[in-house]
Amino acid sequence: MSSREEILGNVRASQPEIAELPELEYFNQNSENPVEKFLEMATLAGSQVYEINDVDSGIEQLKKVFPEAKKVISSTTGLSFGDSTEWLNSDPHTLADVDLFITSALLGVAENGAIWLTDKVLGQRIAPTVNEHLAVFLSKETIVVNMHEAYDKTAEMDYGYGLFLGGPSKTADIEQILVLGAHGARSMHILLLP
């Protein structure tokens, strides 16, 4: 008998009578203004959030924050900053020297300030993690109250890799003291579009 058969047989013999699966709720009534909550939670997690009127003013903002960025790439087409596409098909290791990666999130979550990204919008899976800094466009209307709504809204999305990203990379492994910039992006800039 293969290990698979043996394990499944043991599990089948051991599992108790079927227990009922509970109904899920959204718990999204009477919640605070989701955009305000998102701003609060994202800031708390160490992200920089800018409310902007259009993509161009977002780019201006980024140029102000990163005047010396040498290697800038973007998976959002048509930007006047980091507008190249060669990187999309290159070896992911070659992205290790990226100073700034610009992308667009599909969704924001108010209760935790996280954004949802998939390999389809990222171009390369490693892109949001291997760079030094990360900038993300996010439309206010895509902000949902909580994770229950977030999974509902992303249920039909096709992805091989999906990521709720809650802010810049961090660690508290040394004496529980919080430090930003562990392995991934040192800073995360969220550009909130109306």
Binding site: A45, V109, N112, G160, Y161, G162, L163, F164, G166
Partner: peptide
């Protein structure tokens, strides 16, 4: 924390 910073969903190999 309200969520881990990287909550990653692996579905298919790249």
């Amino acid at each position: 924390q309200p969520l881990t910073i990287y909550t990653s969903h692996f579905k298919k190999p790249r």
